[in-house]
Nucleic acid binder design. Structure first.
Lengths: 219, 219
DNA sequence: AAACTTTTTTAAGTATACTTAAATTTTATT
DNA sequence: AATAAAATTTAAGTATACTTAAAAAAGTTT
């Protein structure tokens, strides 16, 4: 299967996991930076390969086969992120960009080698779960968006759900990192802002960030 | 530049380094597993990109720009080989196959990270030189093919110039590995065979192997 | 040097993955 | 419910990287 196909299947999968309300060709096209027409063409082609269900004007839906393919690619992506993060001094954004390319040129054999080398990790450096070789994912039920937290409570950062350079630069600057401890000092519901304390510094975060930073309750 | 272009340029470069007598489209086509017509087409296209000199019915010759591109790809290939060899339990043949794919999806930035992590090695696990970021290569002048060695002398294996699985399986079985010591016990010139001693075992090698195993004199 | 063989080139055609522009259908608005 | 807006689909066309088949040139043999 080509890189274009892999990226298309992956985009549908990720779309389903996030803003699942729109999996029509146009929305996928926007995420991939291709025209709507190209996305429709591709959808038809993938339907003929039994990777997704396609009906005119309806939402695209991955078949089991398509889902397995997506999980396989996501697995490789996140394993590369984990490996590059461990070995090299690179930002999460740089790591993501490289993994985006490497994921398509990685045999299952090599993926398993990377996984074993890392001790079969269940999460990547963003806190995103790494599917195992069978495509099974460890769910992270009890993690919630920072926007949904309680003022006065302390939490552990469990996921940074973004690919954006500016976001990661901000996180790196303030110590917002997978596994780190933060205290929510104020929730300004009306302004949709959250004030946190980390490393004795106080930071005010707006909704753009508090919706993509996930945390677990700190026991 | 596309993967097809990168592989074409690399094939010319490697051809020049080995059986340099024929760099015409047909020979390159054979190495890449494409038709002669496709190779001619590609040669014309690359000439228009100033990557090689093309004149009808003549040998193909890389320009400086083309040579730099080839060296950049070879650098990435050999850095991946060195990294995979260090981290994972994989055969030289498996490592080669993975590197063949990864080399095209590796930024200069990542290549430099890999190189630094490995301590900027000058040679890969086959003993082949790794070009530096500027495309400069450490020459290995004093290494000679096993077929050219003297009976009675002891040598250090410096290069295993092959991509072939069977060859590497054979090498692994008998301890023929980069850096290992061997003694040439007999040179059967008429039969083009070389008898060596390694780890107290005697092995008789024919020309197919003695021409691709390179050694240095052992001081 | 003529004849044969091999290689290279040209020409025509294919699959993939896109594009833009127009037509169609769906969705939202009044 | 009619109309306007937005999205989707169809249609036609492009670039890349190939293919096969035929024509042309080069190389080899006798």
């Amino acid at each position: 299967m080509s890189i274009a196909i892999e990226n298309f299947v992956k985009a549908i999968y990720k779309n389903d996991k996030n803003d699942s309300n729109n999996t029509k060709p146009g929305n996928i096209a926007k995420k991939l930076g291709i025209s709507n027409a190209a996305a429709t063409d591709m959808a038809k082609k993938l339907a003929s390969k039994d990777l997704l269900h396609y009906e005119k004007y309806q939402e695209l839906q991955l078949t089991d086969k398509g889902t397995q393919m997506a999980l396989n690619i996501v697995r490789k992506h996140r394993l590369w992120e984990a490996l590059l993060f461990k070995l090299f001094d690179m930002s999460l954004h740089e790591i993501h960009k490289e993994a985006e390319l490497l994921e398509h040129q990685t045999s299952d054999f090599l993926a398993d080698k990377i996984s074993a080398y890392l001790g079969n990790p269940k999460f990547d450096p963003h806190g995103d779960p790494i599917p195992n070789a069978k495509g099974e994912i460890t769910t992270v039920d009890n993690s919630i968006a920072l926007s949904q937290t309680q003022a006065g409570e302390t939490y552990i950062i469990s996921r940074l759900m973004s690919d954006d350079k500016e976001f990661f630069d901000f996180c790196a600057l303030h110590g917002l990192k997978y596994g780190n401890r933060i205290t929510v000092t104020n929730q300004f519901k009306n302004n949709r802002m959250t004030q946190i304390s980390i490393n004795n510094n106080t930071i005010l975060l707006n909704e753009d960030f508090t919706n993509i930073i996930y945390v677990n309750e700190s026991n």
